[in-house]
Every structure is written in structure tokens, then in C-alpha cells.
């Protein structure tokens, strides 16, 4: 019986050359529309709810789609399929989605507590707000985090509170940025080094679970590592420069950040740290949030 129907419909198809809705659907729609689940576009079950009994509205929308859902991309026009083809797709969708219930969309990040996401400290490359596109988020501990920019080879900002919510990025097509969970407490608008012409990012090593960022500035290699100060009070930042600078250097830290600076070497004038050549090869700056 089944065979007979298949044979019958196949011959009808050949004789009348009626568009094959299932085939057209696979070709034009299936990448974005699944039966019972929203992916790029709404599920067939939902589409059926909207359009059942309204083939003309279905065709009209498919020819001239618009943006009607926030956070969902606009469908490209299906005008090339033709009205007859779109009606065949309509019939196919109404048929296969009959009696199907759309799965409820999962709220929140189902993997937020995964061993690799919940771990602290944590290094996570991510699209971050107020940073270049090659950004790295670092949770120094449970409460102090920072954003390192691997494009510009510099610290962008630090915050305390939680870490990041990467779900908007991970759950979509990658067009969203991560959300910062906490309060930004410190921002650097530029590198504190006086001269950083075209730094080149070399990557990072993990030591004691924390990243040691490395970058090349001219003939010198700089490494920079961070650690949290207890109770979310701030962080330390240790630099190593190799080969050691041949003369004194100055670190020009931002003066408007409501933080206090101290260091193991050098002398401070306001937010400027002067280091003798001998001290500049390795030094640590402590940054306390106020």
C-alpha cells in the first residue's frame, strides 16, 4: 500500500511536474527551520500555528520577510522559489507539523556549571565589551576578573563581583558579546608603557593556574601576570622585561580610576612610577580598588 502511494505520487510528480514541497523545503528552508525547535528561525510547529489556513500570508511573508523578533536575524527573501513552489512548501510544512508541539526554549545557560566554566581561576577567550575583538577574559579568583586584549597586548579593565555570562555569545551565532557580571573598577585607556610601538602577542603560559601573558615590543619581550588581592580589594600585576631595559622607564598609570597604586620597586609621583634600569627587569604593581 505504502509502495503504491509512493509510486503514485512519484508518477504524478513526473507527469504534472508539480513542485515537490518536501524537496524545496530541504533545499531552501531546512538549514534554519526545524520541526519542533527554534534554531535560526521559528520551528515548523510554530509556523503552522501562525499560518495554518493562510497560504497567501505564508507566501507573502516568504517573498517579503521582515524583522519581527528581537535577537533573530531577518530571513532572506524566498522570491526565487516562486509562488507555486512556496505553496508547495506551505503544504509540506502544514502537513509535517500537524499535531507537533514546539519544545520550550531552555532558559539560561545549561552549561554554566560545567567543570570548565565554573572553575577558578579561569582564562576564556571571548567577545568582550569595550575591548578589541581578540579579547581574553580572566577570572583571577571568585571575585576579581579582568579583560586582556590580545590585539593591543594590554590590560583593558578589571572588575569585581562575578565573572562573565558568555551565554548570549555561545547560544547564538556569535554576534553577541559576553556580559560582565559585576562592577568595572578599573579601566586603562592605553598601555602604561611610554613606548609600545606595534606590540606582537606571543601567547600565554599557565603558571599556578593563572596566565602569564607574553608580548614582543621591539627587541624586548614583556611578560605580564596578575593575581587577585583577597576580598575583592584589587589585584597585583607583575612585569618582566627581557632583555632588561638599558635605562630607566616610566609607567604612566591612569590617574582617574579611584584606585591606589603601590609597587615593590621604583618611586611614585602621583600615578607615575619611575623605575631605574636595574629595577625595570622585574617589578610588581599593586592596584587597590577604593
Amino acid at each position: 500500500m505504502k509502495l503504491f502511494i509512493a509510486f503514485f505520487s512519484a508518477s504524478t510528480l513526473i507527469v504534472l511536474a508539480k513542485p515537490d514541497g518536501a524537496q524545496l523545503f530541504t533545499t531552501n528552508c531546512s538549514a534554519c527551520h526545524q520541526l519542533d525547535q527554534m534554531v535560526v528561525g521559528p520551528s515548523l510547529a510554530e509556523i503552522r500555528q501562525i499560518y495554518n489556513g493562510k497560504p497567501d500570508a505564508f507566501v507573502k511573508w516568504s517573498v517579503n520577510p521582515m524583522k519581527k523578533r528581537p535577537n533573530v536575524i531577518e530571513m532572506p527573501s524566498m522570491v526565487h522559489v516562486g509562488e507555486e513552489g512556496l505553496l508547495a512548501i506551505y503544504e509540506h510544512v502544514m502537513k509535517v507539523a500537524e499535531g507537533v508541539k514546539a519544545k520550550a526554549q531552555v532558559e539560561g545557560d545549561p552549561f554554566a556549571t560545567s567543570p570548565t566554566q565554573a572553575k577558578r581561576p579561569l582564562v576564556q577567550r571571548m567577545f568582550m565589551p569595550d575591548a578589541g575583538p581578540a579579547a581574553i577574559a580572566v577570572a583571577l579568583d571568585d571575585s576579581v576578573s579582568l579583560c586582556w586584549d590580545a590585539g593591543e597586548c594590554r590590560l583593558r579593565y578589571a572588575w569585581n563581583g562575578g565573572f562573565i555570562d558568555g551565554y548570549p555569545y555561545w547560544s547564538g551565532n556569535g554576534s553577541s558579546l559576553a556580559k560582565i557580571l559585576g562592577n568595572i573598577r578599573y579601566v586603562e585607556k592605553e598601555s602604561p608603557f611610554a613606548e609600545t610601538v606595534d606590540p606582537r602577542f606571543l601567547g600565554y603560559k599557565i603558571e599556578d593556574e593563572l596566565p602569564v601573558f607574553a608580548y614582543q615590543v621591539g627587541s624586548r619581550k614583556v611578560t605580564e601576570t596578575f593575581s587577585a588581592i583577597a576580598d575583592a580589594r584589587g589585584f597585583t600585576r607583575s612585569f618582566k622585561i627581557s632583555p632588561a631595559p638599558s635605562g630607566p622607564i616610566e609607567m604612566d598609570m591612569p590617574s582617574d580610576q579611584g584606585v591606589s597604586y603601590s609597587s615593590d620597586k621604583g618611586t611614585w609621583t602621583g600615578s607615575k612610577l619611575k623605575l631605574k634600569a636595574a629595577d625595570a627587569a622585574a617589578f610588581t604593581i599593586k592596584i587597590l580598588f577604593k
Partner: peptide, 28 residues
């Protein structure tokens, strides 16, 4: 996304300790 990275296990404990940037000379 941002680079070609070499993951190296320097101390042989089965976990990468170094994330070396091999090439990032393209725009984003």
C-alpha cells in the same frame, strides 16, 4: 577565532601549560 595557537604540555602532565600564538596576522 583570533589566531592559530600551539598548545604545549611543557611538564608532561597531560595538560597544556602554554598557549603559544603561532600566527595572528589577520584582521578581525
Amino acid at each position: 577565532r583570533a589566531e592559530l595557537t600551539r598548545l604545549k604540555d611543557l611538564d608532561g602532565d597531560g595538560v597544556a601549560d602554554e598557549y603559544q600564538t603561532v600566527f595572528d596576522g589577520f584582521g578581525m
